[in-house]
Measured scan of single mutants.
Amino acid sequence: VTLFVALYDYEARTEDDLSAHKGEKFQILNSSEGDWWEARSLTTGETGYIPSNYVAPV
């Protein structure tokens, strides 16, 4: 399991995006899409895309 933590708040801009709150942890499901990674929030269980530069490894 690849875990990352949000460094900043991010507000989803499309229905495919996933909002993130600073300190929230995510499981990365797919990081092969360049700057946008598919992730699952460990807080809400929701999945979507987050900007890779907004997260760091735990």
Rank of each mutant, 00 (worst) to 15 (best):
Val1Gly: 14
Val1Leu: 13
Val1Trp: 13
Val1Tyr: 14
Val1Gln: 13
Thr2Phe: 11
Thr2Arg: 12
Thr2Glu: 13
Ala6Val: 07
Ala6Arg: 00
Ala6Thr: 05
Leu7Thr: 04
Leu7Glu: 05
Leu7Asn: 02
Tyr8Arg: 07
Tyr8Lys: 07
Asp9Asn: 07
Asp9His: 05
Tyr10Lys: 00
Glu11Gln: 12
Glu11Ala: 09
Ala12Val: 04
Ala12Pro: 11
Arg13Gly: 09
Arg13Met: 12
Arg13Trp: 07
Arg13Thr: 12
Arg13Glu: 11
Arg13Ser: 10
Thr14Arg: 14
Thr14Asn: 14
Thr14Glu: 08
Glu15Pro: 14
Glu15Leu: 11
Glu15Tyr: 09
Glu15Asn: 11
Asp16Thr: 14
Asp16Phe: 15
Asp17Pro: 00
Asp17Trp: 09
Asp17Thr: 13
Leu18Trp: 02
Leu18Cys: 05
Ser19Asp: 08
Ser19Gln: 07
Ser19Phe: 05
Ser19Trp: 05
Ser19Glu: 05
Ser19Ala: 08
Ser19Tyr: 05
Ser19Met: 06
Ala20Gln: 02
His21Trp: 07
Lys22Met: 09
Lys22Ile: 11
Lys22His: 05
Lys22Gln: 08
Lys22Asp: 02
Gly23Gln: 02
Gly23Asp: 05
Glu24Lys: 00
Glu24Leu: 03
Glu24Met: 03
Lys25Phe: 15
Lys25His: 13
Lys25Trp: 15
Lys25Gln: 12
Lys25Pro: 05
Phe26Thr: 01
Phe26Arg: 00
Gln27Lys: 06
Gln27Ile: 15
Ile28Lys: 02
Ile28Asn: 00
Leu29Glu: 04
Leu29Pro: 04
Leu29Thr: 05
Leu29Lys: 04
Leu29Asn: 05
Asn30Met: 07
Asn30Pro: 05
Asn30Leu: 07
Asn30Ser: 10
Ser31Leu: 09
Ser31Pro: 10
Ser32Glu: 10
Ser32Arg: 11
Ser32Asn: 11
Glu33Phe: 12
Glu33Ser: 14
Glu33Trp: 11
Glu33Arg: 14
Glu33Ala: 13
Glu33Tyr: 11
Glu33Pro: 10
Gly34Cys: 14
Gly34Lys: 13
Asp35Trp: 09
Asp35Asn: 09
Trp36Lys: 14
Trp36Ala: 06
Trp36Cys: 12
Trp36Arg: 15
Trp36His: 08
Trp37Thr: 02
Trp37Ile: 08
Glu38Ile: 15
Glu38Trp: 15
Glu38Ser: 07
Glu38Gly: 03
Glu38Pro: 06
Ala39Pro: 00
Ala39Phe: 14
Arg40His: 04
Ser41Val: 02
Leu42Ile: 10
Leu42Met: 13
Leu42Cys: 15
Leu42Gly: 01
Thr43Ala: 11
Thr44Glu: 01
Gly45His: 05
Gly45Ile: 03
Gly45Leu: 06
Gly45Ala: 04
Gly45Thr: 01
Glu46Val: 09
Glu46Ser: 09
Thr47Glu: 08
Thr47Cys: 09
Gly48Phe: 05
Gly48Met: 03
Tyr49Asn: 07
Tyr49Lys: 13
Tyr49Leu: 14
Ile50Asn: 00
Pro51Arg: 07
Pro51Gln: 06
Ser52Ile: 06
Ser52Phe: 07
Asn53His: 13
Tyr54Met: 15
Tyr54Glu: 02
Tyr54His: 10
Tyr54Trp: 08
Tyr54Asn: 08
Tyr54Ala: 14
Val55Asp: 01
Ala56Gln: 09
Ala56Cys: 11
Pro57Tyr: 04
Val58Tyr: 11
Val58Trp: 11
Val58Cys: 12
Val58Thr: 07
Val58Ser: 06
Val58Lys: 01
